[in-house]
């Protein structure tokens, strides 16, 4: 009898805890969306920000965030892909592999502010790239590499060894088999991993404050020559992203409608993460279907 009473109480407590957590999480999401979505308008999403007056937008920051994301992915994906392939396909169990695996684990657990400071020291100061999109993209690459590498490795690992044997038995090198058989088969989950990591990169701020900088100079959206200073594509211009913008206007406290702008920008970030999550699953499924469907 007593055990049954305890069981009832415990189950009740668990319901309460889960209920509380649901409440907290729902309130959090609700608060962001309810406070932020009303601020969203075409003007808000496209207009440049205003430092001292109300009514500014987040256009440049939004563009910067996406541009930075794309550059980061362009740099980090090939490296993570290579490293993931080596770890899963070639690495033997020896001191070298163990050391590198440990290094990757350590890199993934480093606080992003430390990664950002390292980027600041090495890229911004020593290599003299200044506060720029490129510096930011490199810092974000360092931040992104360990997770992306592991996700690539995991995706490759889930492909059956039978496929590798099949390639070997035909006289194909491991590299050919990996490139043309294993990678295509692993593509759905690799894409899912990439898009999920994109969500993480999109919202990162601490690594960017001292690399991509905290200013968003006006851009001329008619000028697409990456060598011009006002061109949106110039990778050497300083570029405050959306996440950095939220932090900055709140810590400076000079923008009169900082709370409203932050609320809107937070909603945009959360919606973006939501979209990345949905996109990741959807893309993975679509690619998987295309790969396995009868053509």
């Amino acid at each position: 009898m007593q055990a049954k009473t305890v069981n009832k109480i415990a189950t009740g407590v668990l319901y309460i805890i889960a209920g509380l957590v649901i409440l907290i999480l729902a309130a959090l999401l609700g608060y962001i969306l309810v406070n932020g979505v009303p601020h969203l308008s075409w003007h808000f999403l496209t207009a440049p920000s205003r430092a001292f007056q109300a009514g500014g937008g987040i256009g440049i920051q939004l563009f910067n965030s996406f541009y930075l994301l794309i550059l980061t992915m362009l740099i980090s994906f090939p490296i993570a892909l290579g490293a993931g392939i080596y770890l899963n396909e070639y690495a033997k169990k020896n001191w070298f592999t163990t050391m590198i695996r440990t290094a990757i684990e350590i890199l993934s657990s480093l606080p992003s502010v430390v990664v950002g400071l390292f980027g600041f020291l090495l890229i911004v100061v020593k290599l003299n790239f200044g506060f720029s999109i490129l510096s930011g993209a490199i810092a974000l690459t360092l931040f992104n590499l360990p997770l992306l590498t592991r996700s690539v490795e995991g995706s490759l690992n889930s492909i059956s060894n039978l496929q590798r044997e099949a390639g070997s038995a035909l006289g194909l090198s491991k590299w050919e088999t990996v490139l043309h058989v294993i990678l295509p088969a692993a593509l759905p989950s690799i894409v899912t991993g990439v898009v999920l990591s994109a969500g993480r990169v999109f919202g990162e701020a601490a690594a960017l404050i001292y690399t991509a900088g905290q200013s968003a100079p006006a851009l001329d959206f008619g000028d697409w020559n990456p060598f011009n200073m006002a061109s949106p594509l110039n990778p050497l211009r300083p570029a405050e992203t959306l996440a950095v913008h939220i932090w900055k206007i709140n810590s400076e406290g000079i923008m009169p409608d900082a709370a409203a702008v932050s609320a809107g920008a937070s909603a945009v970030l959360v919606i973006a993460v939501l979209l990345f999550n949905i996109l990741a699953r959807w893309l993975g499924k679509v690619i998987f279907k295309r790969l396995t469907a009868a053509r």
Binding site: A166, G167, S168, A169, G171, V181
Partner: peptide
């Protein structure tokens, strides 16, 4: 070793076709 395996082929216990079309399975290598 790769050249050698072209002349000494192997078939395994469990069928292991590539996740490709029937034609591509044969033409790929």
């Amino acid at each position: 070793v790769y050249e050698m395996r072209r002349h000494i082929g192997m078939v395994f216990q469990r069928p292991n076709p590539f996740a490709k079309s029937i034609r591509d399975n044969i033409t790929f290598a």
